[in-house]
Design a protein around this nucleic acid. Structure first.
Lengths: 264, 264
DNA sequence: TTGCTCACGTTATCAACGATACCAAGGGTG
DNA sequence: CACCCTTGGTATCGTTGATAACGTGAGCAA
């Protein structure tokens, strides 16, 4: 095994085991069985070394994802890609932070590869007539939102445990990027049980006089919150694919002023 | 001016002017006109100092935003908040990176304040009947996506210049979180408490699987019936202006959906 | 006044870090 | 053999975060 690979492997292991998310070149050299200046001879810089570590880690991840990608349903692939992205971030927090929020030396290679892979999937989605925006822009949109969700989950683990933030944002973003699936019937009624509960809870929170006692009201609000969670059917991964676009938001809420006119 | 403020100010200026996004305690001390150990006496740690810098910077931003917030149209406030968030990130990249991707010492205060402010706006949106998910979760969703967009714009300035990524993701995310305007096609639904209770009760009566136990459900239905009875009560005792604003936004701007499919 | 504590600051220093200068084999090639 | 280039090692520099030890002046009791 080449010394470069040894150093890369040692740096990867130390980085993933580091509580601070940082590694020292001396530690890497010692673990790799070489002297410190060898690192600078092979990589030239610590940032370059870390960039190589990130690139290698993401290359592995992307290879694994690319291997299992092509399915008959490109939209399902899209959703699976989002979930794997989030899962990878949670499993490799330090690596992911280095990629998502780099310092001076950027790491464009990993992101670009990821962008390319996502774009390929989006291209298949577009060929199926399901994509609503240009694939490149859609890839930017999806990657941005996915990165934000992953970083939120990383840096704030106490963010409402049990709330599957990633799945929620995924459904929202994909629904905004995809063409709504053939809506059942003419106008699909978007009034679900969860929304009704949300509206009622908000109204209850505001107004004071009520037909219920304060204790009843408190319990009612708690129940309404629980009802807010399930929008009718729990999003099981088996059925979830079809629900992606059932949320037809056919009127883009407000100001697409910049989207239509100026893009040319 | 206290030495603490001097140090904070010096650290802020150095941080914003730093190309690497990092500052040295010696530089901060020199600029503040004090000796280095004073920093450790006042803050105890470099991470704590940086956390204080981030908190102060975000407090200023949040104060400015909070001052200009309350408008008649809460949805418009929501959109403006998103844009100001993105703009602030672009204007203060180092500060924003420290907040969005912190190291060992987290900076929960700034994010929590931001979350609270956004949640207040979302509460007003919910009271207008425009919110589709629980305000707390909606705040998580919006902040996550907004952070991801801001970090993407920061770390990759070459991301398709001219494409207003932030506005696109904003429209998508808000469309996924809000109730579609004029969903029933006709007039805006008068969001009274009794009507929401009626809707929810009807939905509960129809669908069987539920997050509540049968006993809880029965009691909930009874309460909803009682809430339905007081339908004639005043919908808004104090602020009557909020409801008039639910329709201010124009409905649509032509199909932005299938416009640029053919770009390949 | 004297003696004491305590908050505040300074000087000097440590340990770890990234990075570099300089040297020492090894191995082809003429 | 001499020559050069690659590869690696030794020793070291400058900087950084952080700390120990000491000094100083205000407030306060006896």
């Amino acid at each position: 095994m080449s010394k470069r690979s040894l150093i890369l492997e040692a740096a990867t292991e130390l980085l993933e085991a580091s509580p601070t998310g940082d590694v020292a070149t001396r530690g890497v050299a010692e673990k790799a069985g070489v002297r410190q200046p060898v690192i600078y001879r092979l990589f030239g810089d610590k940032d370059t070394l870390l960039a190589a570590v990130v690139d290698q880690g993401f290359a592995r991840y992307l290879a694994a994802e690319q291997a299992a990608e092509p399915t008959a349903d490109p939209v399902a692939d899209l959703r699976r890609g989002w979930d794997q992205h989030t899962q990878f971030a949670l499993e490799h927090p330090n690596l992911y932070r280095l990629m998502a929020a780099p310092g001076p030396a950027c790491v464009p290679k990993a992101i670009d590869e990821m962008h390319a892979l996502l774009r390929a999937t989006l291209e298949r989605v577009a060929q199926a007539g399901r994509l609503a925006v240009e694939p490149g822009r859609a890839a930017d949109i999806v990657i941005s939102a996915n990165t934000g969700v992953a970083l939120t989950l990383l840096t704030r683990p106490g963010t409402r445990p049990g709330t599957d933030l990633s799945a929620r944002v995924r459904d929202i973003v994909l629904a905004g990027v995809l063409v709504p699936e053939a809506s059942t019937g003419g106008t699909s009624p978007p009034v679900t049980r969860g929304r009704a509960a949300t509206t009622l809870a908000a109204l209850l929170r505001r107004e004071s006089p009520c037909a219920l006692s304060p204790a009843e009201r408190a319990l009612l609000c708690e129940w309404l919150t629980r009802l807010t969670d399930d929008d009718g059917a729990t999003p099981t991964p088996a059925d979830g694919g079809s629900r992606t676009a059932t949320r037809t938001h056919e009127s883009r809420t407000g100001g697409s002023r910049t989207t239509d006119r100026s893009t040319t």
